[in-house]
Every structure is written in structure tokens, then in C-alpha cells.
Amino acid sequence: MKNFPIDYFAIVVVGFLIGFGSMFVVRPMNASPSIPTFSDIENKMVDGRQEEVKADREVDKINVAASREWMENPEPFVAELEYLMETNCSDHAMRQYGQMLARLDTSLFHPDTGRLRDADGKTIPRIGMNLLLNSIPAFLPLPYLKDEHVPGNFKRIMQHIPRKSDWTTCTFNISPMWRIPRNPI
């Protein structure tokens, strides 16, 4: 008689679990033409992957490494920025800077829009491009470049850069992190 409440409680709990579990019995389902089969889904995945591979091939034609190399290596530009500030963006200094930019590979930038392309070959949004323009040292002097100093490879990029109307002051926000030399491993 002492175990009666415990036994009763155990029977109720087990019954409840069996009753609740019977609600989720897997019943066979009739095939419907609107439900795709596994092979249909697999074929769609393969087709989608082929489109991705095609986009990757288009990006592979671009010399991605050459474009990224100068964007990820700020050290050569820091000295140039300091010189430009020292000379207050004089025509001579900006002409030299334009010659330096002419040697850079800009194939990673879309030929029509002038915006940077991502790994899939799609152009990054305007907000992303504005962020890059303010964070990569090579881009900082571009608003100060006069049209005659802009090299041919940067002309398409210049369409996204708000130009300075007053060239009397030339200052750049050179981040302390850019001044730290990096040793490639």
C-alpha cells in the first residue's frame, strides 16, 4: 500500500508518454507530382553549382592576387601620403602619385562600374565601396587628384569618388595600424 502513489504516478506518466507518442506515428505518404523527388533536388543543386563554377571561372581570369597585393599592403602608400601632406598636395607631388598609381593592377575592379568585385565576380555595393575608399591608403589622395593626374587604370574608379573642390588643404587620416610594418610569412 505504501508504493501505491508511486506506482499510480508511474502508470499515468507512461500512459501519457505512449498517448503523446502515438500522435507522431510516421505514416506512409502517397507520392504527389508536386513534391520533388530526391533526383530532382540533386539535379537542381548540380545546375546551381555549375552556375557558381562559371562565375568563379570569370573571376579566375582576373589577376586577383595582383590587385589585392597592393590593397593589403599599405606601407608604400604611407610614405607617399606623408609626402603629399608635407607638400600640401602640390601638382608635382600629385603627378608623381598618379604615376605610382598607374603601375598598380586594377583588374579586380569592374570595368563598367569601377567598383571592386567580390569572390563570386559580383560588384560590391556602393556602401562597401565607400568604406574601402576611406580605409585603403592608396585611395585617400584620390579626391585631391586633378583630372590631368588621374592615370588611365584609375579613371573608372574615380567615378565613385567625391572630388574636392578646394585643393588648398591636403590632410589624410593615416591610421597608426598602417604604419606598422608587416612581415610576410
Rank of each mutant, 00 (worst) to 15 (best):
I35A: 10
C89T: 00
K44I: 02
M71A: 05
N130R: 13
Q96H: 08
Q50L: 14
V12P: 02
N88C: 05
P141E: 09
P33H: 07
D118K: 07
T106A: 15
D166M: 04
T123R: 10
E58A: 13
L140I: 00
H160S: 13
V12I: 13
L17G: 02
C170P: 03
H92L: 11
D105Q: 06
L104S: 03
M129E: 06
R95I: 01
T113M: 14
I6Q: 12
F139T: 00
Q50K: 14
P76E: 05
L81R: 07
N153T: 02
T106Y: 12
L142D: 03
N130E: 13
E75R: 06
K155R: 15
P141A: 14
A102T: 01
E82T: 00
H149P: 01
F77M: 12
E69F: 11
D56K: 09
D147W: 03
A102R: 02
R115D: 04
D166T: 01
E80W: 11
M94L: 15
D60H: 05
M177P: 00
S39V: 02
D91W: 05
G98H: 04
T123S: 15
M85C: 02
E86N: 11
W167I: 01
Y8Q: 06
Q159K: 07
C89I: 01
L142V: 03
F139A: 13
M177Q: 08
V64Q: 11
E148K: 05
L101H: 04
A65Y: 04
R68W: 09
F139P: 03
F139Y: 15
D120T: 06
V78G: 05
T168R: 15
L132Q: 11
M71F: 09
I35K: 11
P141K: 12
I35H: 08
S32W: 07
T106E: 10
P33E: 11
G48D: 10
R179H: 02
T113A: 12
M23Y: 12
D166R: 05
R117N: 09
M85N: 01
L81D: 05
F16V: 01
L131D: 08
V46I: 14
L108I: 01
L132R: 13
I161A: 10
I124V: 15
S39P: 00
I127Y: 07
R182V: 08
P76A: 09
V150K: 04
I136T: 05
S67L: 04
T171P: 02
Y83L: 11
Q159F: 03
E80Y: 09
S165C: 01
F9L: 14
R179E: 14
T113N: 10
P33D: 12
V14F: 15
I185N: 12
T171E: 03
V53F: 14
G19Q: 07
M23R: 12
C170T: 01
Q50S: 09
M71H: 03
Q159R: 06
D7R: 14
P111R: 11
L132Y: 11
F20T: 00
E80R: 13
K155L: 15
G19K: 08
A65N: 02
F9S: 10
A119D: 09
S32C: 06
P184S: 09
N173P: 01
V12A: 15
L140P: 00
